[in-house]
Design a protein around this nucleic acid. Structure first.
Length: 288
DNA sequence: AAAGTAAGCAACCGCCCCAAG
DNA sequence: CCTTGGGGCGGTTGCTTACTT
């Protein structure tokens, strides 16, 4: 079970991915789709662990990824979702199309956490920091199971009417904190009866905010990802592929591609990218 | 200008869950 | 029902870059 190495460690390369490796992986996925990740390195000619390939693809190479810092709206969504889900980064990422769990996790740890602390809000519990002592005494932060103990109200980054103040973050007054309906851990426990109640409370809380309330719908992300559009487009009309590739922000998503362009893309044997435009149905329909 | 420190982020590690046999 | 293997996830590490002294 679980602690087993996912692949033979001998001969498996680690560390930063090279442009050549990225190219191989992209070509393989685009040609064969996402299948058994363990088999991917071998089939793609990579000396990498299957897990590493999966992470590289999902966190960096996927065409539908946005790059760059989270904008303020996204940041606020992350905070709201974190107050609901805790450190379930994948769940949070699922509500932010184009963002990965890893990216959100990093952004949380490096930016949002600090902002919240600066505002006097405990980033773990979303409670005012003066309750921190009792919180820490009563909870074990290392236990992932405890992440569900977060208050459902959400934490506002100095928001009024759902918008962020430009540079965030002045410490909220006690009155403003009360207005934001922070609950003490005790009252949280008393008030929370079931996850269904919590969810319905959330829906009520955000019913006037379509953007936020959308997040509490478990089904669909707000925006369809370009990657999904690609698959849809291809299942409908092959001709749409050309326009899809034309619209894909490869330059933003793949910095290494820019590097290659700097040097002359064909120096790297990138003819295969031209082939993408001619790729046949099988490339995007592995089950066929 | 150089050295030291902090911040940011990509990548890895290892545990957990779940489906298949 | 048990075992096994693969994928997913959260936490952590370590490298690179930016900033400070």
């Amino acid at each position: 079970m679980g602690g087993q190495p996912c692949c033979d460690k001998l001969g498996v390369k680690k560390g930063p991915w090279t442009a050549e490796e990225d190219k191989k992986l992209i070509n393989f996925i685009l040609t064969n789709g996402q299948c058994c990740w363990r088999a991917v390195p071998k089939l793609a000619g990579l000396r990498r662990c299957g897990k590493s390939c999966r992470l590289r693809w999902t966190n960096y190479l996927r065409p539908d990824l946005k790059r760059g810092l989270l904008n303020q709206a996204e940041e606020q969504l992350v905070i709201d979702l974190h107050s609901r889900f805790g450190n379930r980064w994948s769940k949070i990422a699922a509500r932010l199309p184009g963002r990965t769990d890893n990216e959100i996790k990093n952004h949380w740890n490096t930016h949002i956490k600090k902002k919240l602390i600066k505002m006097g809000i405990d980033p773990v519990t979303h409670e005012p920091l003066h309750n921190e002592t009792t919180n820490k005494e009563n909870s074990n932060d290392n236990d992932p199971k405890n992440t569900q103990s977060h208050t459902p109200q959400g934490t506002s980054l100095g928001l009024e009417n759902g918008t962020l103040s430009p540079e965030g973050a002045t410490a909220p007054s006690a009155a403003s904190l009360e207005e934001n309906s922070y609950n003490s851990p005790a009252s949280t426990d008393q008030n929370s009866t079931s996850s269904e109640d919590t969810e319905s409370n959330n829906e009520k809380l955000y019913e006037n905010d379509p953007l936020i309330s959308c997040l509490f719908n478990d089904e669909d992300p707000i925006i369809e990802s370009p990657w999904e559009l690609l698959l849809q487009a291809h299942s409908n009309e092959q001709d749409n592929l050309d326009s899809f590739w034309a619209m894909m922000p490869w330059e933003e998503n793949c910095p290494w591609l820019l590097d290659c362009q700097d040097f002359g893309i064909h120096d790297f044997g990138f003819d295969s990218f031209n082939d993408l435009e001619m790729v046949d149905d099988d490339a995007f329909n592995p089950e066929k």
